[in-house]
Amino acid sequence: MPRIQGCDAFRVAMPRGRRAESILVRLADGDGATGWGELSLPDERGGRRGRDGGAAGTGPWADIEHRMGPALIGLEWDRPEDVSGAADLGAHEAAAAIDTACWDLWCRTRGLPLAHALGGTRTSIVTGARISPAQVLETLPTRVNKAIGAGHTRVTVDVRPGWDIEPIRVIRQAYPALALVADAGHAYRDTPEHLEVLEGLDAYGLAAVERPFPADDLAAHAKLQLRIGAAVAPDVGDLDALGAALRLEAGRALHLRPDRFGGLTAARSAHDLAYAAGWDVWCSGAGGFGIGQAAAVALAALPGCTLPSDVSDPAQGPVYVTPPVRSSGGVVGVPLTQPGLGHEVDEARIERLASRRMRLSA
């Protein structure tokens, strides 16, 4: 059986402009093969956090350095699923980075593209985009037009009480055929007033209403789904929550993010459950360094991912993986001629950008 011989972690931030931060994980076997994973750290502007992305002395860095990493060193494994015990030692976000790195390493040692190893059947992914949340009606059509001009065929726009019917009406009036998702960010409640607004949104031919209610109020999601034609997409972050949503018929669409489910292994299982139930699925990646997006591309190649996915990096942004994960005419190719993620990480640049490093070895 192969063994994991090394685990490195790097905390990195964009060198200029938007200071997106990620923790990158690199796993190595005894023959020199490596696999990469990425987790995106939350925006620090919302409040103080510790150096590892959580409260001081906690968070994903501590999960990787003190719990998951040591459990991986010397571990014998035949398949990435065998590493799930180590991934269970920390939060979903850290587990996702470890799990993705395991899949990448395993595929590279066997010469398999990650998309094929997961069961993907697509050679390209149709892309969508999320519009910035600035609540300015006058600029909304221009921002949507920019996304359409880049080839994206689905646009997600944030809605909140008081900012819902009018922005959707403006977009739909300007772009009658555009696939449109309204992301409510848990802002509504199961009240007659809020239900009336959400039902009103349905008149504009939405593809989905995402996260309309608090995640634990699946009954409200089920009630709304009975009243509208658009698919409701509840915010589910694990297989138990998804199973409950399926049983209650609390939606018909799933926004699938590997970091929310704890990695590609659980995300693939979530896809399989949603697909079997007839739900639509779309994927998105997390992080600004290309690795999280590359993993999401592989996941979006699964047959149940029927809606355009958010799986490309900004067209003019810096490049940390080769080839960059970018759409051309609203399409991202699935890398099927190279093993693993299908992208090579610029390790020297990552080393230079790292503000914190960790190395564990057998």
Rank of each mutant, 00 (worst) to 15 (best):
E196I: 02
D235I: 02
P314V: 11
R45L: 14
L264F: 03
L353F: 01
L239D: 06
L114V: 08
T121G: 02
V157E: 03
C305S: 12
G340D: 09
H221D: 11
A231F: 07
A117Y: 03
G90P: 05
A20E: 15
A222W: 13
Y188R: 04
Q173N: 14
E196G: 14
D190F: 06
A9E: 01
P335W: 10
G278P: 05
R11M: 12
E199L: 09
A184I: 05
L72A: 00
P303Y: 12
G292P: 02
A129S: 10
R359P: 06
A187D: 12
G17N: 11
L75G: 04
V297G: 02
D63L: 04
G263N: 06
I148G: 05
A231P: 01
R268M: 03
A266N: 12
T191K: 07
P133Q: 07
Q173K: 12
L360P: 01
A348Y: 04
G333D: 15
P314G: 09
G30T: 06
D82V: 12
A296F: 07
A87I: 05
L137D: 09
L353N: 01
S312H: 13
A101W: 07
A354H: 13
R19I: 14
V232W: 00
G6F: 00
T322F: 08
M358W: 14
R130F: 03
R356F: 11
A55E: 15
L39M: 13
G17Q: 09
A91W: 11
L118P: 03
R352F: 06
